[in-house]
Design a protein around this nucleic acid. Structure first.
Lengths: 156, 156
DNA sequence: GTGGATGCAAACGATTTGCAAGCAT
DNA sequence: ATGCTTGCAAATCGTTTGCATCCAC
């Protein structure tokens, strides 16, 4: 879905919602929509999991071998700034990025054996967190909850 | 409390529990109790908060200016291995270490304005976490829960 | 045409490691 | 005496940055 040479593209016909979000952020900040940025966004959206910059690089290079790793870093940070991606650090030395747009908040179950990351959400825990914060006069704007252990598959 | 030149030290008289834990770990693994390791342990225990390697280094150097940063890293990892310290990564690029021995499990409220880190514990949340894990057939061996936001002091 | 974006290589900061010399056992 | 530890400097790894060139607007 590359529309950048299409004169009709300003009509946003058949355009992914994420692409629209990116275009609007770029326009608002006087930034350019480049071939690389479209390619990286497509690659990012095609991976429905928690990607490292290196993994995103390997995926992007399949579509455009000339792309540089620095551009991946610059662009994934851009995607974070416009609310399409979110940084997640699971403490293994590599920053990971996950989809944020149109995805509801969730927490993670991380298998320390196979590295698999499962997601869950639990509103009761969220409520208790809000209560804890309130008791401390603390104004929460984000949180992270991760359970580390052995997943069902690895236990067998 | 430096006992390394004291012939009576093997009697463990007046010795901190943490020092005993360290000595036993060293003996078990055929490792040596050096002047540097004692100094670093003392410095670590003297700081009742979440220390980075750099901060621990600055504190240790006050007592022994000849100590190297590499030794700090090697020793704090040793303290983690014997259960006296625990790594904590708050996502600001620096690994932090906190006391583990004789400290009950707790989670963190992190102020993104002043950087202050408060601790809390909540058994109801822990119970819900256990329930989530059970539903996924997941065997948890550790977890992390952090709330990021603005602390009471900074709100004013 | 202008100013933002790219690719490359060099710079960076936290952490680790190789090595010769030192020291606990 | 043996071999674990140290300090130092160099290496590593993920990430960022400077710069000349390129390209979207």
């Amino acid at each position: 879905m590359l529309w950048y040479n299409d004169n009709q593209s300003h009509l946003y016909i058949h355009m992914k919602k994420e692409e629209k979000v990116l275009r609007e952020h770029l326009a608002r900040n006087n930034l350019r929509l480049t071939r690389q940025r479209e390619t990286i966004l497509d690659a990012f959206l095609s991976i429905e999991s928690h990607v490292s910059a290196e993994e995103l690089y390997r995926e992007t290079v399949k579509k455009d071998p000339a792309i540089g790793l620095a551009t991946i870093y610059r662009t994934i940070n851009l995607l974070c700034r416009c609310g399409l991606a979110q940084e997640r650090d699971f403490g293994d030395g590599e920053t990971r990025y996950e989809h944020l747009y149109n995805h509801k908040h969730h927490d993670h179950l991380i298998c320390t054996s196979c590295g698999n990351i499962a997601e869950f959400e639990n509103t009761d825990i969220e409520k208790l967190q809000a209560k804890v914060a309130k008791n401390h006069g603390f104004e929460t704007h984000s949180h992270r909850l991760e359970l580390y252990g052995i997943c069902e598959t690895c236990k067998q």
